[in-house]
């Protein structure tokens, strides 16, 4: 079988680019191999783990199950694109560092991309909504606890709720409403 190629034009991290890609290549492969954007991680290559998440036209996608040719005309952001021209970190990246949300670091880029989408949405997510929005990412190191804090704090700061953000602490025992009347 002969290989088929196609030219893809898109914007990656704010820069217009074009590449000839194998039509069978995933966006993960294109970003990693053609652009050396190695923050895009491969953990399953079937859209289960979320490590390869990138933002496409404002929305998070598993780039491993997104064909490179579909990127035609799209605006794509990877973790490398969140860094300022002088190497400055975005606040969500800094929050992952400050809250101890990074251990092995392999799920981190994908998590930060989805978190970036959340904190820039202008919406205040409830705790349950936050968990659901982040549940496309698997992490085996952190138990998600410190990631939850990093995202929630940054979200609240984006909403101007600085005092509330400081109250998001570790050691949170949650009191739930009574489920059913007891006999």
């Amino acid at each position: 079988m002969d290989k088929q190629y196609k030219v893809v034009h898109c914007t990656i991290n704010g820069k217009k680019v074009e590449r000839i890609v194998d039509v069978r290549a995933s966006l993960t492969d294109m970003l990693r191999n053609d652009f050396r954007l190695t923050s895009v991680k491969k953990g399953c290559e079937v859209g289960e783990c979320g490590a390869c998440t990138v933002i496409i036209d404002g929305e998070g996608f598993n780039s491993c199950i997104y064909l490179a040719v579909w990127a035609e005309g799209k605006e794509i952001w990877t973790l490398e694109g969140l860094i300022g021209p002088g190497g400055e970190l975005s606040d969500i990246q800094q929050a992952f560092i400050d809250e101890g949300a990074i251990q092995c670091g392999f799920c981190t880029p994908g998590f930060i991309m989805t978190s970036w989408e959340i904190v820039n949405s202008g919406k205040e997510y409830t705790d349950d909504e936050l968990r659901k929005a982040l549940s496309g990412h698997l992490c085996r190191c952190t138990g998600y606890e410190n990631i939850f804090r990093a995202v929630k704090k940054t979200m609240l700061r984006h909403l101007g709720k600085f005092e509330e953000a400081e109250k998001v602490n570790s050691q949170g025992i949650t009191e739930y409403p009574e489920p059913m009347p007891f006999k």
Partner: peptide, 25 residues
């Protein structure tokens, strides 16, 4: 002390090299 782990910054930037990132294409 709760000092920040030495590799957190590079991991948050996505520039830490794991095995596949180091391998020649």
């Amino acid at each position: 002390q709760a000092v920040t782990r030495h590799d957190a910054h590079d991991k948050a930037m996505g520039r830490i090299k794991y095995t596949d990132d180091m391998c020649d294409k």
